[in-house]
């Protein structure tokens, strides 16, 4: 119990002193992190002001003229606004639906494997793609999916027509998501494996006594035990729903798939190339962040209400 809190009449300064005395090691430990966030995350935020300004390098961020919401309206009024917004959301939601459970499933499966060397092998093999540069991954993807590539060889073997998959709008999203899962599944499963290793063995033992089979054990012990980890990660993921990185899109897309692949970030990247309009890009970036923030808060609220787990 907190001793000082019980004493009535202690001033705030005394409380702080008391608290500092008791936990000073902890405060010192967290100090670098606080400084880091302050310097690298909070101070640069004033730069976001140029979204409402007509940025001119000579006048600097603070000196440029205010233009209000001009840049935002210009983005909303664009012919392709609805399309890029839709594509961003669709790709994001798809990769959430398919990509989010994948590492959980992998972790659960690995958890059940009893042969140690096999488990290690699978883990290593699934981690590896994480360390390969995105450029190389997409390079491989392109090589595999051209009309004379591996994937088409398989298609041809089954008597289907050869077709360069990256020129097919229908194939773009599946390719994007599958390659993403392939690249990230192993790495992302580490978190869940860590959570899994924290489950008390006695729980399983008790369950076995009660006659629960492997499936029942997974369902009633393993999953509930890592539920909080899953939810936290899910909430964090919601916070980036409006963000589809332009690097991968730009490496993968071409005009024949624009209709499904052109997302906010890639569209802005192309606009940026043409007119190096910093203010406009910042406005779009800010719009993205605000949407993400709203989603994050909503997801957190929901989770708090439903499962009692939340970020704050």
């Amino acid at each position: 119990m907190n001793v000082s809190a019980n004493k009535k009449g202690t001033t705030l300064i005394q409380k702080v002193k008391e608290e500092w005395k008791r936990n000073k090691e902890l405060y010192i430990m967290i100090l670098p992190v606080v400084i880091y966030f302050f310097i690298f995350m909070y101070i640069p935020m004033y730069g976001a002001a140029i979204a409402f300004k007509q940025f001119s390098p000579a006048k600097g961020i603070l000196g440029s003229d205010w233009v209000g919401f001009t840049h935002f309206f210009r983005f909303f009024d664009g012919i392709y606004f609805v399309r890029v917004l839709k594509n961003t959301l669709v790709i994001s939601v798809y990769s959430l639906i398919f990509g989010f459970p994948a590492p959980i499933i992998l972790a659960l499966l690995l958890n059940e494997v009893r042969v140690k060397w096999f488990k290690n092998l699978v883990q290593t093999v699934t981690y590896l793609p994480h360390f390969i540069s995105l450029v190389v991954i997409i390079g491989l993807l392109k090589e595999f999916t051209i009309s004379t590539g591996l994937v088409n060889d398989v298609f041809a073997f089954f008597g289907m027509d050869r077709f360069p998959l990256l020129q097919k709008p229908e194939a773009f999203r599946p390719l994007y998501i599958i390659s993403e899962i392939w690249q990230t599944v192993g790495w992302n499963s580490i978190i869940y494996l860590a959570a899994l290793s924290g489950i008390d063995e006695q729980l399983y033992e008790a369950a076995r006594m009660d006659g629960a089979n492997r499936w029942k054990q997974t369902l009633h012990i393993t999953l509930p035990s890592i539920a909080s980890t899953i939810i936290i990660l899910f909430i964090l993921r919601m916070g980036s729903l409006f963000t589809v990185g332009f690097e991968k899109i730009i490496l993968m897309y071409n005009p024949s798939t624009y209709e499904v692949s052109d997302v906010i970030s890639s569209y802005v990247y192309r606009s940026g190339l043409l007119d190096m309009n910093y203010s406009y890009s910042t406005a779009v970036g800010l719009f993205n962040s605000v949407m993400n923030f709203i989603l994050l808060v909503v997801a957190n609220k929901l989770s708090k209400r439903i499962s009692k787990t939340s970020l704050w």
């Binding site: 580490i190 860590a194 290793s197 730009i250």
Partner: peptide
Amino acid sequence: MKKFVALFLVFVLAFSVVGCGAKTEE
């Protein structure tokens, strides 16, 4: 305790995974 370790890991990873990927444009 292990649960805390796991949660800590969650945060560390969540913040560290951001910096990957390279950009190229012909």
